[in-house]
């Protein structure tokens, strides 16, 4: 799965948990730019991503994410292995 597919999936899940269909993510997007993307929806997003990619994030990596691109990298590293 390449990074643009993962980005699409993240976008889809974020739309779902925020109920805002207007959200369009890029790799540079950060939570700060999207008002609905608060700490609670972030938690929900993580749970949804774990479910749909069948992976588990570590708390340590979650706290290191700076933007959407970091999330994509985390996911890619897990699907590969």
């Amino acid at each position: 799965m390449d990074s643009s597919d993962i980005l699409k999936e993240i976008n889809k899940q974020l739309v779902r948990v925020t109920n805002n269909e207007a959200i369009v993510l890029s790799k540079q997007s950060t939570a700060g730019e999207i008002p609905e993307w608060d700490s609670l929806t972030h938690i929900q997003l993580i749970v949804e991503l774990e479910k749909c990619f069948k992976i588990k994030f570590k708390s340590t990596e979650i706290s290191n994410w700076k933007n959407t691109g970091d999330i994509i990298q985390s996911i890619q590293s897990k699907i590969k292995c």
Binding site: I43, I46, V47, E48, F57, S59, I62, S63
Partner: peptide, 15 residues
Amino acid sequence: YDPKMYVNADIVFSI
């Protein structure tokens, strides 16, 4: 229970 939710957000019931 989701330990990640508990540690990061102090939420004890999983989604």
